[in-house]
Write a protein that binds this DNA or RNA. Structure first.
Lengths: 276, 276
DNA sequence: CTAAATTGTCCCGTATACCGGGATTCTATT
DNA sequence: AATAGAATCCCGGTATACGGGACAATTTAG
């Protein structure tokens, strides 16, 4: 008995005419997928394992719905469940997918020549890093380019106390920055920025001049200058930096070095298709 | 034997007679989520960027459906799209989620004492690694335990030529192994196993004796012995190994060392809740 | 340069797959 | 053993996603 849908046939023709931009909402698409992603985002480094009730509370979804959702996600491998009746956590499959993302980045190939050139030009160590929401993960280095497809070293450091981290952070949407700040800013040296308000100012400054600096905020005696790299959709997702011992890099040099770093970073962005 | 549904209601019969016409299966849950995951799995290290048509072809879904699906996934951040009308690839958000999975693993905490004990007992270097579908990623080492929450080094090597890799691979479901083999086995030394059939045999052997060995298959002159680690659902997802210079470890020692490695690996599994 | 073929996007009625209140079962606590 | 609280299951009703097909934007062929 389906009496539900009975739409007047006359209206149909008119449909094509009215194409006012306001009526067509950005329509988030599949409703269930929105829910799934929402659930995934409930997990974080401080919320590693959550019960059904906790997930309900944080998402606002009804218990029954959430339960079905979680079961399906577990079945699909997006979530793992501690034993049979216990808490949920992010699934191992996500780790696998994440590593595939990293391995498939064009950044490895495209950035190599620029990273090496930058190393030769400055005579200092150059780092290439991507952002994972919390850390700046180093995927390339002058003199020892990393090849993610055949085994590699990966080094990572918190984003708030490294030049690459701040260069990326400065261009993230507010939501990302808020999430980042929510987990706290650990101190590493006596110059590490641990006050969220101060960091926001620092990022503002970084945006305004186009490059970031690290004054021994992670490792004592080590200064760095970094500039952001954009993917072909224009989003900042990586950065390059030049590092040097503090006593070897007088403040007067920073501006000069920064220009070179920015130039190379922009070249990498272009190689990735940004603005093409 | 199997009673599918215990609802012998006579009343309902009129309304929905056909209960088990097509779906007698354990009901995979949200249909759309199954599709989403299927699409995610179409991507791999050899299929980095795919067009709508290619994805349709590989999944078998109709164009229209796939298009809607891809749009929603892009909106959700699960996929990124090169420019506006171009290919799709796995989204950066997946990388972020993957790193969260790694950071949230109890393995870091729980395994540390056992890894260190194993290092003291054998006097050799001990590695703790997890599997990402392709590589064995080292997340812990005797003498220098890695803390994923505050910055770290990660070293990874292909699974087919390391003891940790083979220990994990030996216990993976067929589908995972097939995917792994499909991308080829790179040669590193003259003992590296590059023939899929030979590797399958080797894994069979590994299963039967409970530990794996690496006879200089990745680095010349370096032998290793590894044993699998299970999470609390019983799945093998990690392994520990002991490495030593080939000339220092006579074949007669392998059995003795393997026993110790297995013992510690099992202890870690238990600490994670396996069999509790 | 035009035409044909291919590929991406949009529309819409329909069928179905999901929603969520509430009953039921299971586990933890007193 | 009894109670409370959480997780799981059920089922009617309806919102939602499906997918054929039209249309638009490319690319390739002529």
């Amino acid at each position: 008995m389906m009496i539900i849908s009975r739409i007047p046939e006359q209206v149909i023709i008119l449909n094509r005419i009215d194409r006012p931009p306001t009526t067509t909402r950005p329509d988030e698409g599949l409703k269930s997928l929105v829910k799934v992603v929402r659930v995934l985002h409930v997990f974080s480094r401080t919320a590693r394992a959550l019960s059904l009730a906790e997930i309900c509370q944080r998402t606002g979804y009804p218990r029954s719905t959430t339960h079905r959702l979680l079961s399906s996600m577990r079945e699909a491998g997006l979530l793992d469940q501690d034993r049979n009746r216990d808490r949920y956590r992010l699934g191992l499959k996500l780790y696998e997918l994440g590593n595939t993302v990293l391995a498939n980045m064009d950044l490895h190939r495209e950035a190599r020549p620029y990273v090496e050139a930058l190393g030769r030009l400055t005579g200092q160590v150059v780092h290439l890093a991507v952002f994972d929401g919390r850390h700046a993960v180093v995927i390339g280095k002058s003199e020892s380019q990393i090849d993610a497809t055949s085994g590699a070293f990966l080094e990572s450091a918190p984003a708030h106390c490294t030049s690459v981290g701040k260069a990326i952070l400065a261009y993230q949407p507010d939501a990302v920055l808020d999430t980042f700040l929510a987990e706290g800013l650990a101190r590493f040296t006596d110059t590490t920025i641990t006050d969220p308000a101060v960091l926001r100012q620092e990022l503002e400054l970084t945006r305004s001049r186009g490059y970031s600096i690290d004054q021994a905020e992670h490792q004592p005696g080590l200064n760095c200058v970094a500039a952001p790299i954009r993917d072909l959709s224009g989003r900042v997702f990586a950065a390059v930096s030049v590092s040097g011992a503090a006593w070897k890099t007088p403040p007067s040099d920073v501006g000069r070095v920064a220009k070179i770093v920015i130039h190379h970073a922009d070249a990498i962005s272009r190689a990735l298709g940004h603005g093409a």
